[in-house]
Amino acid sequence: MTPAGEPTSLAARQAALVASLVAGGPPPSGFAPGPLAAARAALLRKRAGEVARHWPLLATGLGPAWPTVFIEWAAGRPGAGGLRDGWDLARALHARAALPALGAEELAVRESDLYYDGQRAPRRRRLPALGRAGDALALQVAGRIHLLRRRRAPCKHPRCPAAPGPDGRRRAK
């Protein structure tokens, strides 16, 4: 017996299943919840890998936190491909000041190179443009991109030559 409101055609049932797996839709009735949850998690891991291939600096900048940060952001949010997913995530992290420096650099370069409205596939810019994210600033002229400014927070590791000494000054010359 089909509960009222449950889709019955194959097309509608496939749509309900995909919505449940990638868009936070309600679980379709009758499916075993454990295997469905395993499939949902596997899809997110696969997406994390694809986004990391498009945004290697963003993923590297987040270090061991990368899969968790991506999966928390992406759960219930349908995928738009590795390039756009990573772009949306980088902008979201930037908005809450949680974008690592390497990710900011990558975002600035992309913003200078391509026009992306958050809705449609990014398009190459024809005119010179600046891309800015955090401390990273990229200038694109005729398709060539120059990273103009990149200030990193001073390293706090005690043995790092660039780290500030006890007097607050850099140890390195």
Binding site: L10, A11, A12, R13, Q14, A15, A16, L17, V18, A19, L21, V22, A23, A39, A42, L43, K46, R47, E50, P78, G79
Partner: peptide, 20 residues
């Protein structure tokens, strides 16, 4: 199938093993 209802699943999904 890999998409339905305008959404991409991002991976290969099984079909119901029905005549439909």
């Amino acid at each position: 199938f890999v998409r339905a209802g305008g959404l991409e699943a991002g991976h290969l999904l099984p079909l119901p093993r029905t005549h439909e």
